[in-house]
Every structure is written in C-alpha cells, then in structure tokens.
Design a protein around this nucleic acid. Structure first.
Length: 290
DNA sequence: CCGTAGACCCGGGGTG
DNA sequence: GATGGCCGGGTCTACG
C-alpha cells in the first residue's frame, strides 16, 4: 500500500523532525531487513552495520523516487527505505516505551532540540517485504536500484511515457506497474489513473496514440497529486510518521469498488486479472481497443 | 534459429 | 485456508 503518495507524505512529515538532527542507532532487531547494494543480506561487523545505518550522522535531506525514500547525512551516507506492503517509519515521543511493540527492526535516537516533539525514529514491518538499503558514500558502489527506476510518477511527462511504452506489446496496466517505466505506481493508482484517462487496462502499449498518452500522463500526475494532498490511501496498515492514516480511500473511483456503479456513468464496475493483480475498471468508460 | 520481452508462478510472513 | 496494496527470481513461451 505504500505507493508514491504514501511515501511522499511520510517524507514530508519526517522532514521537520529529522533535517538538521543527528541520528544514533539505538537498537537493531532483525538485521535481515538490511540489504547490501546488491540486494543480498548484509554481512558486516556490527560497527560497520551501524555506520551504514547513518549512526552519528546529521541529516541533511530526505529524498524520494517512486516508492523509495532515502535519508542522507553529512558526508554523503544514504539509507534507502522501502516500505514494501506493511512497512512503517514512525516518530516516537520521549518517554513512550517501545517494549511490546511488535516487529520493530531498527530504532534510532534523534538528537533533539528543546522544542522537539519526538526523540526516536522507528522502522517496523511485520511482513518484512520492506527493507533498508545503505548506499552512497561509504556503502561502496552505486545504487543499482535507483538507476533502474523510471521517471517519478508525480512529474512524468507524456512524451517520456510514450517513449518508454510505445514499442511495447504488453498491456497498459502491466507496463504502468513496472517501476522501470514509471516509478511509484502500484495496483491502486494504476487502476485510478487508467479510469481517469478512459483507457482499458488490457490495451497494448503500442496501440495507444499520442493524444491518449497525453491524457494518460495528465491522469497519472493528477491522481498522484490528489492522493498526496489527502495524505495517501489507508486500506489497513498504512500510517504516516506521526501515526495518522491517509484520507484518500474515500476518493477512490474504482479500486475496491468492483460491482458498484461507476461514478461517471453508473454502469457496474468489472474486475479482471492483469499481471496477476486484481484490476477494477469500467467497461463503458474504458472501452477495449485491442 | 536465436534472443528477448514478457507472462506466469512462487517465496517471504502476518492477519484473520 | 485465503489473502491487498510488493518485489525479485526462476522458467517457459511467443514473437520478431
């Protein structure tokens, strides 16, 4: 569920509490959520591991590309955070105990100032599909995953989309889920974007004309922007760094509404399986054009 | 005939 | 027993 809007909202809510503060690694629970740049498990001495987790660094900025969020400290150390399905990056107030809180994998103490509300940062993830990946200065090589991501969905241009998709034979939906084509879309926002653009999820990328790519690009940006404004979508697990759920769920037009009337034309919404994912669409507003 | 895009399946781990 | 909203890896097929 953390797709681009949720990750961007987490980033924004963390910035005022982390930038300019120092981080000290406090606890490491399951180290297997920490991966090397090659994607494999991290095998290093404990001290080096803490070092890679930004121990002792002062936060200079929080970056994001697609569903990836990273924390950067002075000296260029960076830590990529991927939330997977159920990951959370949250802030904790002084005095609040974490004992008994399940699935906490890494905690940091934040070097706070007088007026600061929070003194700790916590990464938790029950399913452990998420992970932490040190990269940048001190972690050796380039961050291959970042290099492979397509342009960010929030600002992607129609011409970029068209250039990346036009030669492909695959269905629109499969292509839009591919993070190498556009970064940040998951199942929810792909369905919302296609509905807004009036394009059938099974339409082959190569059968889409320029005008439709313009519409698609505009739809993706608009949907993501609106979702960010509403703090993202919470279906079940997602909360932001301050523990609040997103409010975009009630604005969804297709996702989770199979069988209910389309909000544009009142015809019942249908479902399909595309790329092994449940897909909701309106047969009337998104006519098949194979 | 070959190379590649892409389709399909699975694991990972928890909740219900 | 079923199961999203994720991702990577393995394998197999179809197409150019």
């Amino acid at each position: 569920m953390p797709e681009l809007p949720e990750v961007e909202h987490v980033r924004r809510t963390l910035v005022p509490h982390l930038v300019g503060r120092s981080l000290t690694v406090q606890t490491i629970g399951r180290a297997d959520v920490i991966r090397g740049a090659d994607g494999h498990r991290f095998r290093r001495s404990c001290r080096l591991l803490r070092q890679r987790l930004l121990d002792g660094g002062t936060v200079t900025c929080l970056g994001r590309l697609g569903k990836h969020l990273w924390i950067e400290t002075e000296g260029g150390r960076r830590l990529d955070v991927h939330l997977g399905m159920t990951g959370r990056l949250t802030l904790v107030r002084p005095g609040r105990s974490l004992t008994g809180v399940p699935h906490v994998h890494v905690t940091w103490r934040i070097g706070t100032r007088e007026q600061d509300e929070y003194d700790r940062l916590v990464f938790q993830d029950p399913r452990r599909f998420g992970c932490l990946r040190p990269f940048g200065n001190g972690a050796g090589h380039q961050w291959v995953i970042l290099d492979r991501l397509g342009p960010d969905g929030l600002t992607i241009k129609a011409r970029e989309l068209e250039a990346r998709m036009i030669a492909r034979h695959r269905p629109l939906k499969a292509a839009l889920l591919d993070q190498q084509i556009v970064a940040g879309l998951g199942n929810i926002y792909v369905d919302e974007s296609l509905h807004r653009a009036g394009l059938h999820p099974l339409t082959r990328c190569c059968a889409v004309n320029r005008e439709q790519y313009v519409l698609l690009g505009r739809s993706i940006r608009a949907i993501l922007r609106q979702a960010v404004v509403h703090d993202g979508t919470t279906l079940r697990d997602y909360i932001d760094s301050e523990g609040r759920p997103g409010r975009f769920r009630s604005k969804l037009k297709v996702y989770g509404r199979a069988g209910l009337p389309c909000l544009k034309c009142q015809q019942p919404l249908h479902t399909l399986q595309v790329a092994q994912r449940t897909t909701v669409y309106c047969p009337q507003c998104q006519p098949a054009s194979l």
